[in-house]
Design a binder for these strands. Structure first.
Lengths: 237, 237
DNA sequence: ACCTGAACACCGTTCAAGT
DNA sequence: ACCTGAACACCGTTCAAGT
């Protein structure tokens, strides 16, 4: 990202020296910001190289000078998302609170930028912010008294689950609200109409399923996982 | 799916009466079988209407007489997958065993048809097999002594987690083995090379992360969730 | 050194026309 | 009743040519 070698200044640096802002100079950050704006404004399907080029006022192939392809742009967006969840987060005295807080921040970032989360689902960036998040979680698990093997095991269990759930929830949140409401209505209708003779158990709890609330749903899974981890932890939370 | 009304026989029925197999007659099942074969043979990206048409020996738009669009075909594939996991599964005396067995079958179906699972990730079919699976899980939770509200809550926690994990694992398994191996190597290399001063906790457990095994990973999450459910259950498993 | 424009090989969906 | 073929409005990526 940084250019070294003082004898070959980047064009942006040259432009700045001439006093003109490099408004037309493309770079990875400008491209990622434009991609994020595009996805948030018009939804996941709007992220095409052609529309991204238009957003940037450039030819649609110019972007490929800075990213090897569309996949690499998506990885950049994934890293931005984790960055937002992790930046400035400080562990607390209670390892359980540290883990719960981080999980809620990951989910929060997914829900704040559902379009981005939906488009990025399942991609691991293997970059800075991801490492910081991993270090926080593993630190909390060691605080709970787990050895390295168990800390690694439970880190993956917690991280994979949180990301998988965040991505899934974001996919729903990314639908426009009319489509989401239509989907929810169809789901309720079909589950409430299920045959009580064919599916007796399902039919009798269906009203509770229909009343389900997503925050409650997330807290339930998080609570279950942390209860089980606590049950196995050498130290109190 | 079945045609009633004896005075308006379907073309397939007419062809059969004439003694010729309806080899050219399209219907939903033939289309879904072809779609599944195509995805398993050539991967998720190969599922396009044009290639599906070629697979069926028809025009690529003929499929749209039977499905309203590509999305509806994906829903059909999702239902087939759950069908395979659920068909013939019988609950046991131990509710915990019932839940664990079903979760393992869902995962097994995803891993047997990773290409299909990858393409279908996150879609709920709201059809027969899904209802049967829900009924089994909720039945087991009632056997554990939970009331309707808790049974509904924990059903969603378990089902969402199992499906999200199955989908994620399938997405990895769907890569061709060269790409998968390359990805795993890159992942190991970058996690093992992480700076011990910047990420002390991560660096010291990294060897265990690199040694992680996916079966173990799945069983860890399943075990955590079931331990926590058992902790809250009125009846012994 | 960086960007453009044309070209290539594809997509999903619509719709008038055929049989 | 069902299928075809052409057309429409798009894709991502490559590459020679420009500045």
């Amino acid at each position: 990202m940084t250019d070294h070698g003082a004898d070959t200044p980047a064009p942006a640096a040259r432009a700045a020296r001439r006093g003109r802002p490099p408004s037309t100079a493309l770079n990875r950050d400008r491209i990622l910001d434009a991609a994020r704006a595009l996805v948030e404004r018009e939804g996941p399907d709007a992220l095409t190289l052609r529309r991204l080029g238009a957003e940037l006022g450039s030819n649609h192939t110019a972007v490929l000078r800075h990213f090897s392809g569309k996949e690499e742009i998506l990885l950049g967006l994934a890293e931005q998302l984790i960055e937002e969840a992790v930046t400035g987060y400080e562990p607390t005295d209670s390892w359980r609170e540290t883990l719960a807080g981080l999980a809620r921040r990951v989910r929060g970032a997914c829900l704040t930028h559902p379009q981005v989360a939906a488009v990025v689902a399942g991609r691991v960036s293997r970059r800075d912010a991801e490492f910081r998040g991993a270090d926080l979680v593993i630190g909390a698990l060691r605080q709970a008294g787990f050895g390295d093997r168990e800390a690694a095991r439970y880190y993956r269990a917690l991280a994979d689950t949180a990301l998988a759930m965040g991505a899934q929830e974001a996919a729903v949140a990314a639908l426009d609200s009319a489509a989401r409401e239509g989907d929810r209505l169809a789901w309720r209708r079909e589950y409430l109409a299920v045959s009580p003779t064919a599916y007796p158990h399902l039919a009798s709890v269906a009203p509770h399923l229909a009343a389900a609330d997503e925050d409650d749903q997330f807290e339930t899974v998080l609570g279950l996982l942390l209860d089980a981890v606590e049950l196995r932890a050498p130290h109190k939370p």
